[in-house]
Design a protein around this nucleic acid. Structure first.
Lengths: 236, 236
DNA sequence: GGTCAATAGTTGTATATACAAGTTTGCAAT
DNA sequence: ATTGCAAACTTGTATATACAACTATTGACC
């Protein structure tokens, strides 16, 4: 028995996957256009298109009309996970929530950030860093990049009083989000903030949120695995 | 300004959605074929096809080559996280899935286990331990307790051929599940199995599944955080 | 140097067509 | 009646083409 003959578009898909997994095509690098792929593999444009299309649905690629197709950072697709406000969650446990605003500033967007936030290189994004405490104990570090075009007054807020998530929910109601959940070791400086040993495994949630206007923000949440659990919802 | 003109395939999608949501088209009933839709809406077959295709990806429809397109059952919506078969997931990545059955036996239920599985203390439960490999690399350790009342023939299976999840899905279709996700350090013996250093942070998912008859199983999945990521679905 | 317009390149939608592959149905031969 | 086969129908893959919508770049002009 020989292998079942693979369809042409799957051959192209596998080729692209391979390039990405092997690191030949880095994150956010441009991948060949539909026409280029069509010529390379001697197929019609529609067949090449299908390969790109399906990989985009799987979350490996990101496409923008007029600009091109790029390797995505996040592998996950649109999510059904409920998002909650961390202050509410802690309140429901009958505990006290506090937030320390560590940073609130603007930063130059790197190439990667520009793509993820739907901004142009050279522009500046807002950046906030907030440490959440439950009964005075640090439980979550929130690092967030925000698209200034959609939330121009982000820097004027005081995130000791309102969580970034709560503020953003009001300003630019989110319509979609993707997550990536990983177990990691936190960076040394973050271990200090969270008051944990460097070897403590942490849950890290990367989340990209959209409003109707486009990508609103990109948040990285880090929480020690022994203090924090993820139910069927994610807490911001 | 008037509304942006909707693309033709979205018009068809909306039409079909409406029929399903209003109950005109019941579960498992046949929906018009590509050709019929094409004629009805005066579009080409490929456009009608796209509408059906996208609704299939969304889970509203089910298609089988040669037979037709049908309204899907609505079970998937209720669960917050989609559960997938790890073998399928790996297959879709174009990789090879293998499973090593490490243990398959009965154990005395502890007090805790008895409560979680809805059994009585002193009874014995089934226990399986399976290591999943992706391209010969260990990526996930699955430890599972199973309620013998609901799945009496669990011990007769060979989980090198069929994943426990797949088998259980057939025997006792799951109606509900809860998860708990943590970041942990794996036990030394499990680190060996997964071929990771003892300090490697791991994602650990604890999942309890129900069928209509009661609690079916209690699974603990452990995966190295750097090899494994959690999207909007959990992979079993 | 800065602005604007034209242009080339890229993805998105839509059509018409052809053949492959799988399922169901119905008819003919046994 | 049962079997076996052919035909009709349905979905799957692939091609060639056309135009629309959007982006980034280039070059002319001020």
């Amino acid at each position: 028995m020989s292998q079942a003959k693979a369809a042409k578009f799957t051959v192209i898909k596998e080729h692209i996957c391979q390039k990405i997994e092997s690191g030949v095509w880095q994150q956010h690098s441009k991948v060949p256009s539909e026409n280029e792929l069509a010529e390379q593999f001697s197929v019609s444009r529609m067949t090449a298109r299908r390969a790109l299309q399906e990989l985009t649905e799987q979350g490996l690629l990101v496409r923008t009309q007029g600009a091109g197709t790029f390797v995505a950072t996040f592998k996950s697709q649109s999510s059904v996970l409920e998002i909650r406000n961390i202050a509410d969650e802690i309140g429901e446990r009958g505990h006290e929530h506090q937030a320390m605003q560590l940073q609130l500033t603007t930063v130059d967007v790197t190439e990667e950030l520009a793509i993820l936030l739907g901004m142009k290189q050279g522009e500046r994004a807002f950046y906030s860093e907030v440490l959440h405490l439950e009964n005075k104990q640090p439980i979550q570090l929130e690092q967030r990049f925000v698209n200034p075009r959609l939330v121009p007054e982000y820097l004027l807020q005081d995130f000791a009083n309102i969580t970034p998530h709560e503020y953003l929910s009001n300003e630019a109601p989110l319509t979609e989000a993707t997550h990536e959940i990983e177990a990691v070791l936190a960076a040394p400086e973050n271990c200090k903030l969270l008051e944990i040993a460097p070897s403590t495994p942490c849950l890290q949630v990367k989340r990209r949120t959209w409003s109707s206007q486009g990508v609103v923000s990109l948040a990285t949440l880090t929480a020690p695995g022994d203090k924090y659990r993820l139910g069927s919802h994610l807490t911001f």
